[in-house]
């Protein structure tokens, strides 16, 4: 069974003028087909306004499709009785680290999700500890979130999601507001989580480098999925990516340029070592 599946998913909203009259329909998502299997690491790439965040909000039933269906862990997100289960199955981490921390103390914030689920007190404490350990923030448990760095705040937010014990974590541009150090820190945490907890991870981003380790990549543009495949397949199509205003990693770009100048280098080089190897093999 798929962890997350979308079929002919459409999301439309009314476009209004200044007086509030409906002047037309805006199609934010158009016939999306998506299949994410348990344990997979899926990256959804797209430029601003491509609809990727709207899609993310569907996975948590914050938005429900106006057409087609979205299933999370086999549950239809349109069914209001399944709302709690859907949100528990697919935890969500948002972009702004400040605006998603509710507690005034780190551990209390991590406990917020389990509290909402009605988990007994001792079990909450166990989960909070487990969550904070998983993101390496256990020594900050009694701190105020205001004194943490952006990357640390995002790790706390991730711990808050883990404490709800979801099967799947959706990260909606978790690194967009962080400095390079914070970005690395958050990505490393996500990778470790994947290894240790074997959760499904869906990462929404516009940084191509974050997609290198993905099992599958979806590229979105104008509310549609325009490209789909493994990193190697996607990164091999440099021109197409550029058309969707996505920055290809430098190594991939360099390899592509060299290939075009007639060197025998394979398509879709993702890492520096691969390029070095390919060049060494040339002579």
């Amino acid at each position: 069974m798929e962890m997350i599946r979308a079929s002919e998913l459409v999301y439309e909203y009314e476009q209004r003028d200044d007086e509030g009259n409906v002047v037309g329909m805006n199609r934010a998502l158009d016939e999306i087909e998506l299949d994410v299997r348990p344990g997979q690491f899926v990256v959804i790439l797209g430029h601003n306004g491509s609809g990727k965040s709207t899609l993310a909000k569907h996975m948590n039933a914050i938005l429900v499709p106006t057409g087609g269906t979205m299933w999370v862990n086999g549950r239809d997100t349109k069914d209001p009785r399944e709302l709690m289960n859907v949100r528990q199955s697919a935890g969500m981490v948002f972009q702004n680290p400040d605006n998603q921390i509710i507690g005034t103390v780190v551990e209390e914030d991590v406990g917020f999700g389990p509290e909402n689920l009605g988990v007994p007190t001792e079990e909450i404490w166990r989960r909070v500890e487990d969550g904070l350990r998983a993101v390496g923030m256990i020594e900050y448990r009694a701190h105020s979130p205001n004194k943490l760095s952006g990357g640390q705040k995002q790790r706390v937010a991730i711990a808050g999601v883990i404490a709800m014990e979801p099967e799947c974590i959706v990260l909606d541009e978790p690194t967009a507001m962080l400095d390079p150090d914070g970005r690395k820190e958050v990505l490393r945490t996500v990778q470790e989580l994947r290894k240790r907890k074997n959760v499904t991870v869906i990462l929404i981003t516009h940084y191509m480098e974050e997609a290198i380790d993905a099992d599958a990549i979806y590229v979105m543009e104008g509310g549609r999925v325009v490209m789909q495949g493994t990193p190697r397949e996607i990164f091999g199509r440099v021109d197409e990516l550029k058309r969707y205003r996505l920055d290809v990693p430098q190594v991939t770009m360099l390899a592509e340029e060299l290939r075009r100048r007639g060197l025998d280098i394979p398509r879709g080089i993702l890492r520096r070592e691969e390029l070095v190897e390919a060049i060494c093999r040339l002579s």
Binding site: R87, G91, F94, Q100, I102, P114, E115, N116, G160
Partner: peptide, 20 residues
């Protein structure tokens, strides 16, 4: 933003909540 984040973490008001 905060309201969205709270909803995403299954906040449905005080009913059925436990305390840490």
């Amino acid at each position: 933003d905060l309201a969205l984040a709270m909803e995403a973490r299954c906040y449905f008001g005080g009913e059925g909540r436990t305390k840490m």
